[in-house]
Amino acid sequence: MAGAKEIKTQIKSIKNTKKITKAMEMVAASKMRRAQERMIATRPYAEKMQQVISHIANGQLEYRHPFTQERDVKRVGYIIISTDRGLCGGLNVNLFKTALQSIIKWKEQNVEVDIAVFGSKGANTFRRYGIVAEKAHLGDAPQLADLVGTIKVMLDAYESGRIDRLYLVENEFINSMTQKPQVTQLIPLVAADDKDIKYHWDYLYEPDAKEVIDLVMQRYIESLVYQAVVENVASEMASRMVAMKSASDNAGNLIHELQLVYNKARQAAITQEISEIVAGAAAV
């Protein structure tokens, strides 16, 4: 009967684990829904911003913002967006692999890298590659105000000529089953096709063009990073939901198998007891 008791405790502990993973799955599912809503809510701002920028790019001629100019690449910057917490499947690992591939490619050309990281997971991984700024514990509903400091470090680095290119590494949320790691170039701005705009006009800039364009550019980059951070939260929740679902399923299978083993052990113990009693009675 000794075996049966041990198996029973094991089943109990797996059941507890299953309860936890099940709860995490449900929490992640509801958080994902909210994160998705937030993701959609950020879109109008970025779209409007894009329109304004393409108008400026077409109209404004006397002042070119540094963010629109290509330079020789001597050092590149990365903004890497990771999660704060684990237990979300291969989300971070896949992202880091993609980022590292890109970083190594630059290193082979003797180009140095500067890295800014959001989320504590990324901070630990990229420590030895040269992190210049980091911010963790953004929570489930990140605020733009929490991001500006870290973004500013990178923008300042670009303006002062320390870095010549800035990339953003994030998880693209395709659907709840698929998230794709992506490296996108933030600066210099990749020129969008503006074939739709046929007539040319320019804004009245108040107080002057340089000041307005500087502000627009800064806000634009910030909004792109913010969007990526929000998208990454949605990806994190989706990935965690899937990981926890498969953990719960595995726990269920394990419990089922152990239950069979337990039943066998129990039956064997009963049979043994009966045969002992019968043997004892026969001896008397």
Binding site: I131, V132, A133, E134, K135, V148, G149, T150
Partner: peptide, 13 residues
């Protein structure tokens, strides 16, 4: 905020 972000990285380093 920018200084703070930098400081965090330096401290961790």
């Amino acid at each position: 905020a920018a200084i703070e972000a930098k400081k965090r990285a330096e401290d961790a380093l």
